[in-house]
Nucleic acid binder design. Sequence first.
DNA 1: ATCCGCGCAATGTGATCACAATCCGCGACG
DNA 2: CGTCGCGGATTGTGATCACATTGCGCGGAT
Lengths: 216, 216
Amino acid sequence: MTPVTRPVEIVTSAHDRVYRGLRTRIMLGQIAPGEALTLRGIGKEFEVSMTPAREAVRRLVAEGALSMSSSGRVQTPELSNERIEELAALRSLIEVELASRALPRAHIALIDRLQTINGTIAEVVRDRDAVGYIRSNLEFHRTLYLRAQAPAMLAMAETVWLQLGPTMRALYGRLRRSEAPQFHRLIIAALKAGDEPGLRLAVRSDVTQGLKMLAS
Amino acid sequence: MTPVTRPVEIVTSAHDRVYRGLRTRIMLGQIAPGEALTLRGIGKEFEVSMTPAREAVRRLVAEGALSMSSSGRVQTPELSNERIEELAALRSLIEVELASRALPRAHIALIDRLQTINGTIAEVVRDRDAVGYIRSNLEFHRTLYLRAQAPAMLAMAETVWLQLGPTMRALYGRLRRSEAPQFHRLIIAALKAGDEPGLRLAVRSDVTQGLKMLAS
DNA sequence: ATCCGCGCAATGTGATCACAATCCGCGACG
DNA sequence: CGTCGCGGATTGTGATCACATTGCGCGGAT
């Protein structure tokens, strides 16, 4: 048999697989707030022992994506309104800065990609696909912010998204159709025009919009 | 023997003791950038096995306080100038907001405490005590920000401090004496006057000041 | 029917161990 | 004297296990 060149096998540690798996699920709102998790259950699901499961959980707890009772029981946190307001303010602060830094580097290919993602958002909103909505919404923001070339800031922003994940799902359930990409269009318009104040306002509005009604 | 009421023993898990121990040391700049750590070494030092040591290290890696080579070797990170600039920008964003939120709640007792801490800073600067300087500087900021009643924001700010820890030490080595509390005095003055724009500027200056020269 | 205990099952914690990867120092060779 | 290579020692990883704690369901009493 002739040797076949195959894609390089990315060896990723067990704890990292578990971490990323759980993280994605939390960020997309696939775990309800208050839902309980067990180390043995996670281990069985990812086919690893308790050790890497515990490491992944510990890390997510440290990032605020999970909460831990005094007895060590793990669940997704139920956020208070004050905390939601804080996290929304953090999103606003960091993401406005990221957008502002991305602006001078935003060329036409980026704007095209953002518009494509916006199209996807319209689709999933029409299909009432909550997880799809969150996924493509995050992709829209991440695509823009990647241009800022500011990995530490982006990481902070993602940590905030993560903390809001379980709660986010509840919000997008009561989303009115087609309301969604309104501020995204403003963001794109400001990018095209090179209008920094407009961009800052549009991002702040987009971030604040939904979360305000969530903290009601 | 008569039963004695004793202070409630705070049982803190092994991994948490290790985490806090390492975290404090890193934040105070007691570990040089690039210094290597081993799990067995940490375990021996804190008298625990490798398991809690690894959990603590993993958490610190997730928070950016330590870095890990592809082979799993652990050391404190050596920050690039770009990263330092980013972290300084994050400090500025978050801490200005925290100070602004603390302003309406800042009464005289708080200002007194801040002035006391400033006195301590003057002392340790005179004694060329770098670790003492970092410690009391952080205490000054934390004391102010605690009044903001914004735990999520404060946690973010502390994470940034943590990432800058190992590098910070290098900075304060080349500090000119008595230059230190200059911006702190401006902060206190703005607090007394209820001057929000002044406060924002003073905090931004204080945060940016040192880190600019560090990224040279 | 409801509430309270009791005991078992389930869970998190941390130690230990086997294993593979990797680093480092020593010696041989150019 | 410098450089390469090899082998032992060191290190991180993940599985497993014993143990303490906690939660929960079943049964009985009121």
